[in-house]
Amino acid sequence: MTDLRTIPVVAAGEERPSGGQGNLLARVFDELTAFCRSRSLFMLHYCTGCGAVELPPAMTSRFDMERLGIQPMVTPRQADILLVTGYVSTKTLKRIILTYEQMNSPKYVIGICSCTVNGGMYWQSYATAKKLNDYLPVDMYIAGCMPRPEAVISGLRELIANIRAGRSDYWRDYYRRYDHYLGNQQRLFGENWQTPTDVIAEARHYGLFGPETLGEHTALLEQHQTPLQPFEMRLGLKQDKGSSS
């Protein structure tokens, strides 16, 4: 298991204010929130790759992850953890970023399998993205090809401990250094890349707007950005395809 702090490309998260400062009641409230958060985690496991096959055993009768208060959740809006299970192809990575931006804060990302760490055995492949933490702030990596259910559970326990102690707040990093992440995304998806979420406005709303939120890449985004519209689905399906004869 790799703690993100040991990987140099991502800045370490903000230190929590130490005890003895501020309102005592607020501190108690913070403690309570951290406790509750760590005890009821809904996880959205995006089956990006092979690692997804070890999650059903981890969730079902034999290893029974629900003991820890972790349950699968079907929608990103209600999930706390985004589990990226395995190699991330470019096509999938777009969907992962959209999913991640839809999730409500606080949110945690776990990269499972070696492929999310550095590309794994697909480091040569033209189709897969190599390092997940270039595109999203990753709270924890669980390495292995693929990690056993015990490893997954032990990783999640560590995440619980981190949340409980208030150490796992890398989601703030996405707002603080949005330019860095957007730059990597643009490098892979082209300069016209834009997500439907207004991350910069959210950063202001959460009070996480920092000196690195804006930069050359967000400037590029503003140049071509189309105003956010109410979402309308267009699938490009032919009307009444009928029988495919």
Partner: peptide, 30 residues
């Protein structure tokens, strides 16, 4: 399959996948 791909058809022999990866992603020393 390759809806997000804009390069040349990848399975042709003249397409060097490894060189493309090196250019696109860079190498992380471990």
């Amino acid at each position: 399959i390759l809806t997000e791909w804009e390069g040349p058809p990848p399975m042709r022999k003249e397409f060097d996948g490894e060189a493309w990866v090196m250019e696109q992603f860079g190498w992380q020393e471990y």
